[in-house]
């Protein structure tokens, strides 16, 4: 299949911080409707990998190709930089990210958060953005909270709001960075339910998570990372049920 038909292709990413190399040649292809979960111990590089995909971290080497458009890089004082931040901004607006800490803008109401990027980045007319934003809040079950501020919402509500914000830019790929790790256990379910629905309707998603049930039930592909390398990857039925690598076996073993 040609790259131009694939929403997100990542090839051979390398990244180090100071002298510690965090990513050692990671690749991934997210086809239309794929749900790819990245699992691994903390420090395995899974969050950095995800953050490289929308250039929140700039990889030292490797390619990122969004619907056939490769991100251009240049060398600057021995460090690699995107050649055009304009291009990066455009690409970022097509890959929406949901953060572990929600990162809803604290000074804007929930609906304000949802319509911010459509209006100011994509240039959607305010009325249209608002209508669509309200529909999205309805979807995540927060229509009655539209005018609340983030600080007035529970963690689970904030994260569902953040998912509505992500959907509002009509992203080609949704990036989730441990979306349930900062939540109280009783709030995790609501957020996961919304994510399952999105997967069911065929959204392309890349999810960093510790939720093994979600990885098993929802994903089309599971990637297990260890020290910045892909230790094992494949369908959840293979990777999670019959792991080959001893490290993955140990990782999946019940803790108690």
């Amino acid at each position: 299949m040609a790259d131009s038909e694939i929403p997100l292709v990542v090839r051979d990413l390398h990244k180090s911080f100071k002298d510690v190399s965090v990513l050692n040649g990671l690749s991934l292809e997210a086809h239309e409707g794929d749900v790819i979960t990245l699992i691994g111990a903390s420090g395995s590089g899974k969050s950095t990998f995800l953050r490289c995909m929308n250039l929140l971290e700039v990889p030292d080497a490797g390619d990122i190709i969004v619907h056939g458009e490769p991100v251009a890089f240049k060398q600057h004082n021995k460090t690699r930089e995107p050649a055009s931040w304009k291009q990066v901004e455009r690409i970022r607006s097509r890959l929406a990210m949901v953060f572990q800490g929600f990162n809803l803008w604290a000074h804007m109401s929930l609906i304000g958060n949802v319509i911010e990027a459509p209006i100011h980045v994509l240039g959607v007319p305010r009325r249209q953005a608002r209508e669509r934003g309200m529909a999205l809040l309805e979807r995540v079950g927060l229509a009655d909270r539209a005018d609340y501020f983030p600080a007035q919402l529970s963690g689970g509500q904030q994260q569902r709001g953040a998912i509505a914000r992500a959907l509002a830019v009509d992203p080609e790929v949704l990036l989730f960075d441990e979306p349930t790790s900062a939540l109280d256990p009783e709030l995790v379910g609501d957020v996961l339910a919304v994510m399952r629905e999105l997967a069911d309707e065929g959204r392309t998603m890349v999810v960093v998570t510790h939720e093994m049930d979600f990885a098993r039930d929802v994903s089309s592909q599971v990637i297990y990372l260890h020290e910045g390398r892909i230790e094992e990857a494949g369908a959840p039925a293979d990777v999670l049920k019959k792991p080959n690598s001893p490290r993955l076996q140990q990782f999946l073993a019940p803790r108690f």
Binding site: R92, R94, A117, V169
Partner: peptide, 12 residues
Amino acid sequence: GQMEAARAYGMS
């Protein structure tokens, strides 16, 4: 995180 979210959504 507030600025990170702004960048992640393609703000200049």
